[in-house]
Simulated assay, not measured.
Amino acid sequence: MPDYLKLPTTTNGLVRVVIETPRGAEAKIAYDRATRTFGYVRPLPVGMTYPYDWGFIPSTLGDDGDPLDGLVIHQAASAPGIVIKCDLLGALRVKQKDSGGEALRNDRYVFSPHREDAAEPVAADRVPDDLRREIEQFFLSSVLGTGKTIKFKGWQNADEARRAIKKGMKAFAACK
Rank of each mutant, 00 (worst) to 15 (best):
F139M: 06
R93N: 00
K151D: 15
F152N: 10
S78P: 09
G90D: 00
G81F: 08
P45Q: 07
G154W: 10
N12Q: 14
T37H: 08
L61I: 02
L89K: 09
V94C: 01
N12C: 12
R36S: 11
A27T: 15
Y4N: 02
L5Y: 04
T9E: 08
V122Q: 14
R162H: 15
E116D: 14
N106S: 09
V83E: 02
E160Q: 15
D107Q: 05
R33V: 13
M1Y: 06
V122C: 10
K170F: 12
S59I: 04
A91P: 00
T146R: 09
I57C: 04
G147I: 06
G39C: 06
A103L: 05
K148C: 10
R105D: 06
K95P: 02
Q156F: 13
A91Q: 00
L104T: 13
G154A: 10
E102I: 08
S141I: 00
T21V: 01
A174V: 09
Q137S: 13
I73V: 13
T146I: 06
K28G: 07
A164L: 10
R105P: 00
K153R: 13
C86L: 02
P67G: 04
K153F: 09
F152I: 09
R105W: 07
L104P: 06
P51N: 05
V72N: 03
S112W: 14
D98W: 01
Y4G: 02
K6G: 11
G55L: 10
K167A: 14
L14W: 08
K153A: 12
P58V: 05
G101W: 01
K6L: 11
R23T: 11
V41W: 06
L140V: 10
F139P: 00
I29F: 08
L68C: 03
T9C: 10
E102P: 01
D66I: 04
D159M: 11
D69N: 07
K170E: 15
G70Q: 01
I19Y: 08
K153Y: 09
D107F: 04
V46C: 07
D117Y: 14
L5H: 06
E116V: 13
T60I: 02
D3H: 03
V17S: 07
K176M: 14
R115H: 14
A91D: 00
A173N: 11
E136S: 05
E102F: 07
A27H: 15
I84A: 01
G81Y: 09
L71T: 05
V41K: 14
T10Q: 12
G62C: 03
A25N: 11
V46P: 11
S99Q: 03
G147V: 08
Y109Q: 07
V110H: 04
R108L: 02
K85Q: 14
M48G: 06
P121H: 09
V83Y: 03
D32E: 14
A171T: 11
L14E: 12
D64S: 05
G24S: 08
F152R: 10
L61D: 07
D98M: 02
E120M: 13
A25C: 06
V41Y: 05
L44K: 00
R163L: 12
R16F: 05
D3G: 04
G65L: 03
T49F: 12
Y4M: 03
A171W: 10
S112I: 04
A77N: 04
D3R: 00
F138Y: 09
L88R: 01
K170D: 15
E136T: 05
Q96C: 03
S142T: 02
